[in-house]
Amino acid sequence: MSDLRQLYEEVILDHNRNPRNFHKKPGGTNRHAHGFNPLCGDEFTINLEVEDGVIKDAGFEGAGCAISTASASLMTEALIGKTEAQARALFEDMHALLTTNVDASEVGKLRVLAGVREYPARVKCATLAWHTMQAALRNEDKTVSTE
């Protein structure tokens, strides 16, 4: 039970119940990408409004498990106001946080997702939104998968 709580932190459960920036496509969306893990069925579209290299607004649509939903929700919160370069750096930090024991100090509140690395089968859930965001920044058409 105690270690399960490290995965299902209160913040994660909250973002799963009430995802932020959900069902949201900012009016000025000019970057978006589609992420889909066919084995899981987790599926998200990440929508970004980027102006002068700064992410002015972010939202996501779709459906998935608690981990993938909370990760997408927390990510959109973190992205708003960041430059593209900062967003890419955050992706790298999150990737390290979720897949290795490197605990980058820059991730802040996103550290609640660190418990996922103890659950190798669920890492793909947590990383889906992030890889999709990266594809959105590059304006890639191809559907992203982390399976």
Partner: peptide, 14 residues
């Protein structure tokens, strides 16, 4: 209700 099957799978595994 309110619990995605993949979360069920992880909790059950525990």
């Amino acid at each position: 209700a309110g619990v995605h099957p993949h979360d069920i799978g992880t909790i059950f595994d525990h």
